[in-house]
Amino acid sequence: MHSAVAHHFESLEKQAEAQRLGMWLFLATEILLFTALFAAYGVYRFLYTAAFSEASRGLETWLGGVNTLILVTSSFTVAMGLDAATRGRTRRTAGLLGLSILLGAVFLALKAFEYHHHFAHGELPGRYYTGPIAGSGGALFFTLYFLITGLHAIHVLIGMTVLAVVAVRCWRGAYDAEYHVPVELAGLYWHLVDLIWIFVFPLVYLI
């Protein structure tokens, strides 16, 4: 039996199945975590429609768009990395995961640039808001903007860390064609981070 099988599992296959299900359940909790913010966004967008569209138009849409392309691409490289791992080419996997981490870093850099822009223009959450939009709507938009994109950025950071750990272990040959569940699980997490951004992009930038 493979050395990675824990004592209470009967086979590697069974263990992988358990780990996958566990990861999916964890991803479900992540989805619900973001849902509270999306629901708040929906409610306040309904209550302050005019202010929200005005604030949203003030964002740099091209930055959001480029970031979307970057994250989607990083998801693709992670998927290719898993494909390499299933054929035992773990060095190649490590390289592709490294590329994904790099793309994640570019994403964060662009996000930081955008945040800097907001700071300079007083587009800050709640009582710190000094932007041009009258009433409470503009301030609330930026409260939700920073909460959603900030929480997402934290997830990008965590995802990069997870990918880095898995990439290093791949490089050192910890996984092979038979056992590479950690690559798959790290990939699932990264895809979820991408998936959430796919919804953040239109909500925050486009509508």
């Binding site: 909790t29 992540e30 619900l32 975590l33 849902t35 509270a36 709640g126 409470s136 909460l147």
Partner: peptide, 30 residues
């Protein structure tokens, strides 16, 4: 699994509101 994350987020929002005044549940800030 499905309910607890929403509570976690909510408690966090209240803590943020209490500490920084971001206005998310505060009628004085909309």
């Amino acid at each position: 699994i499905l309910a607890t994350p929403v509570l976690g987020m909510t408690l966090l929002l209240v803590a943020i509101e209490h500490a920084f005044g971001w206005g998310i549940f505060d009628p004085a800030r909309g």
